[in-house]
Amino acid sequence: MIGLVALAGLVLAGLVPADARAQAGPQTGAGAGCTTRLLPDPPRRGFVCPGGLVFEAEAAAALGIALPAGEAPVTQIDLERGGAYVEDGSGPHHPFQIRTPHAIASVRGTVWAVDVGEESTAVFVRSGRVAVAHVGTPSDTVLLGPGEGVDVAPGLPLEVQTWGAARVSGLMARFAR
């Protein structure tokens, strides 16, 4: 059975800004055995989860983590707004995805970022491979490699593009990279 834990802005009952929660020091037990900590400049929250999943979420990001029963690794993050930077070291036998209002990004063992806006979701791959599909039409899927990104918006085709240095730098700066 999968449950949903409240983290970095997504509360089981609804969305609240991440900064509305208490901003304490390092924490453990954030669901599925994930450890969380606050990261400065720019403000964001870091997560280290069982199975090799490491990710960061912007301070204002609204997200939830889908938790499988027992000690199984995290299989899904629901990102409603804001950005997340992911280093998924869980390996090829552990399915993992980020779902946004516009896209589903599935991956195994890679480094990538997702940025959710009101009208679209952007996905960028730093290393490895990420499959990206429109929500509701998973048959319309593109595969991104290093340096590639895609903007996902309702009704628009998925077009893989090599992102320019300015766009990559702007997104990575949000995660101090």
Rank of each mutant, 00 (worst) to 15 (best):
A60Y: 04
A61S: 15
L63T: 02
L63I: 12
G64W: 03
G64Q: 08
G64M: 04
A66P: 05
A66G: 15
P68D: 07
P68L: 13
A69D: 10
A69P: 04
A69W: 00
G70D: 11
G70I: 03
E71Q: 12
E71S: 11
E71D: 15
P73K: 10
P73Y: 04
T75M: 06
T75E: 10
T75R: 14
Q76D: 08
Q76N: 13
I77A: 00
L79I: 07
L79R: 06
R81S: 08
G82F: 05
G82L: 07
G83P: 11
A84Y: 01
Y85R: 15
V86K: 08
E87T: 13
E87P: 01
D88S: 07
D88Y: 00
G89T: 06
G89W: 02
S90F: 00
S90Y: 00
G91P: 09
G91A: 14
P92I: 00
H93K: 14
H94S: 11
H94P: 00
H94Q: 15
H94K: 12
P95I: 01
P95Y: 07
F96P: 01
Q97H: 12
Q97D: 09
Q97P: 02
R99M: 01
R99D: 00
T100H: 09
T100A: 05
T100N: 10
T100P: 04
P101W: 11
P101I: 04
A103V: 08
A103P: 08
I104F: 00
I104L: 09
S106F: 01
R108K: 15
R108I: 02
R108E: 05
G109E: 12
G109Y: 07
T110Y: 02
T110W: 02
D115R: 12
D115N: 08
D115G: 02
G117Y: 10
G117F: 12
E118Q: 12
E118M: 11
E119L: 14
E119S: 14
S120K: 13
T121R: 06
F124N: 02
V125T: 15
R126C: 01
R126G: 06
R126A: 14
R126Y: 08
R126H: 11
S127G: 06
G128N: 15
G128I: 07
R129H: 06
V130K: 04
V130E: 05
V130Q: 06
A131T: 10
A131L: 07
A133R: 03
H134G: 04
H134E: 09
H134D: 09
V135R: 15
G136W: 14
T137S: 13
S139Q: 15
S139Y: 06
T141L: 10
